[in-house]
Computed example of a mutant assay.
Amino acid sequence: MYFQHSPRLWSEHPGLVAGVLSASGIDASPAPDLSPYFATAKERLGSSSESDLPEIQAWRRAFASMGLKPTQYRCASEALLRRFRKESTLPRLHPLVDLCNAISLAFAVPVAALDLSKITGDLEVRHATGDESYLTFGGDIEHPAPDEVIFADGAGRSHARRWTNRQSGLSVVRDTTTDVLIVAEGLHDTAAEDVPRLIETVAKELAAHWGTSPEPAILSHASPRFTVHS
């Protein structure tokens, strides 16, 4: 299978930097030490609100350009930072998800972790046609509106809504998950330096903690496709 962003999305958001990796051999072993990532996030939030961070401001502009109210629909990293600022911690979900959330906090960049076994065919970040289905975490089926940016697979299922706003309950990482796709996307001015560092950080943690050999890549308008090798 392959993962990519549509040509239209690259055209509408030329500043996009997307990092992606696939990995096998994931299990529910306890997560590595997350405290350094929490400390970085706490330091960044110490002198400002999450909405002041350039990474978050860039996503707010993108959401506004898509007709979404940025304070109603937040990118995943802003939602995590907001919760962390209020509670000084995050709920524990799955070791890999906890790791990705902690790294997302530190970089203020949205990070998605998807169970590859739940994805049918290829996965593309594109505008919805209105025919796709989306499974909520509560078990309800929704249908993204036409032109909404989604993660769509070959079966017409949406694995994320409003781009980086919310993932699907279908491909969430669970204790039974072994093969994953991890995607990080930035739109801010220094994304070309930050996103590769983020993906490298994730890859190193996966190799050290789960003994995997991740396959990382940085996508661009000229080279938009990442092939997941079985």
Rank of each mutant, 00 (worst) to 15 (best):
S48E: 14
S48R: 15
S49A: 15
E50Y: 12
E50H: 13
S51G: 02
S51H: 12
D52L: 03
L53P: 10
P54E: 10
P54W: 02
Q57V: 11
A58L: 02
A58I: 07
R61N: 10
F63N: 12
A64R: 05
G67L: 08
G67V: 08
G67H: 09
L68G: 02
K69M: 04
T71V: 11
T71M: 08
T71I: 07
R74Y: 05
C75K: 09
A76I: 02
S77G: 11
E78C: 12
L80F: 01
L80S: 10
L80V: 05
L80N: 04
L81E: 02
L81T: 02
L81W: 00
R82V: 06
R83Y: 14
R85V: 04
R85P: 01
E87Y: 10
E87H: 13
S88P: 01
S88R: 14
T89W: 06
L90S: 09
P91C: 11
P91T: 10
R92Q: 15
R92T: 14
L93I: 15
H94R: 09
H94K: 04
H94N: 14
P95I: 13
L96C: 08
D98R: 06
D98Y: 01
L99T: 08
L99Y: 01
L99I: 02
C100I: 01
N101L: 03
A102R: 00
A102N: 07
A102C: 05
I103F: 03
I103E: 05
S104N: 05
L105I: 04
A106F: 04
A108P: 06
V109S: 08
V109F: 03
V111C: 11
V111L: 09
V111K: 08
V111I: 15
A113V: 11
L114M: 12
L114R: 07
D115C: 02
L116A: 07
L116P: 01
S117I: 05
I119V: 15
I119D: 03
I119W: 05
T120F: 10
T120A: 14
G121C: 09
D122M: 02
L123Y: 04
L123W: 00
V125Q: 07
R126E: 14
H127R: 15
A128T: 06
A128K: 08
G130N: 04
E132F: 09
